[in-house]
């Protein structure tokens, strides 16, 4: 697609639509928080969403797995349309993994139990198989030796990697990341980003709300800039960072890349 992208590892993007958002609007009471969102995400895409705080970027990805409901327009995930039908919502949620800023691990369960809970109860997997899958993904995020511990005994970076493994155990088609490194101490950010990069390289479709612009340059095939509830600009990372078009994008980039 781009001659600038040669520095990055080229990753395949298929023609298959993973997420299709059309004319979506959302209000909090009278406050119009998301305005006329149109976004098509193809299988294998790695999209970074950035923007000033309060711009609606988290709300946008939370709409994709119906943690927030939208009032107008349509969201289709893997061909399943999100309506008020609980059945569709549960189906979408089990196909879409999500990592949160504060990990949201279950503190009363061990790391292993955190990872096997949903496969056992939602996917009805036999316990033995769920444990095998969980250990596989815990190895992938490089913390199999912590499986018997509780989340409170792990560092923030380890907890976030567990959260990623927990989502992967559901074999999701799409992963959403909501500021996954914002609550971490600086020395732990890299271990989480490395995990995410590895995931991207395996072809996972990812939408990340993050301020890690290095990650965006290295991994993303598309960067979306949001402001005041709208998608203001989107482009390939090189073009986005080197040649922003909108004034608002320029201002934002000058603020976060200022020093």
């Amino acid at each position: 697609m781009s001659e600038h992208a040669t520095a990055r590892k080229e990753l395949a993007v298929s023609d298959e639509v993973a997420i299709d958002i059309r004319g979506m609007n959302k209000w909090y009471g009278t406050f119009h928080v998301l305005r006329d969102i149109n976004l098509t995400v193809y299988q294998g895409e790695r999209i970074v969403i950035c923007g000033p705080s309060g711009s609606g970027k988290s709300t946008l990805i939370r709409c994709i797995n119906a943690l927030e409901e939208h009032q107008q327009g349509s969201i289709e995930v893997d061909g399943t349309r999100l309506t008020n039908d609980l059945k569709n919502i549960d189906k979408v949620r089990s196909e879409v993994g999500m990592c949160f800023q504060h990990f949201n691990l279950f503190p009363h369960l061990t790391i292993l139990e955190n990872c096997t809970l949903a496969p056992i109860w939602v996917r009805k997997e036999p316990k033995k198989q769920a444990i095998e899958t969980a250990m596989h993904f815990l190895e992938k995020v490089k913390i199999p030796d912590q499986a018997k511990k509780y989340p409170g005994q792990l560092s923030g970076g380890q907890q976030q990697r567990v959260a990623i493994a927990r989502s992967l155990c559901m074999k999701p088609r799409v992963m959403l990341f909501d500021e996954p490194t914002s609550a971490l101490d600086p020395e732990m950010i890299k271990e989480v980003l490395d995990t995410m990069i590895e995931l991207a390289e395996e072809g996972m479709t990812m939408l990340c709300v993050t301020h890690e612009m290095g990650f965006a340059r290295q991994v993303a095939n598309r960067v979306i800039f949001m402001d005041q509830g709208q998608i203001v600009e989107q482009n390939e990372p090189e073009a986005f960072f080197n040649n922003p078009q909108s004034d608002r994008t320029k201002l934002f980039l000058s603020q976060i890349l200022g020093h």
């Binding site: 949620r93 993994g97 949160f100 949201n104 279950f106 809970l117 109860w121 939602v122």
Partner: peptide
């Protein structure tokens, strides 16, 4: 219980009663 616990359960596709009982 922080809201994140409900969201963690929801995002994994657990039903309301499963979230209540398990989390």
């Amino acid at each position: 219980i922080p809201k994140g616990q409900y969201e963690g359960g929801m995002s994994l596709g657990l039903s309301f009663w499963q979230q209540m009982r398990l989390i």
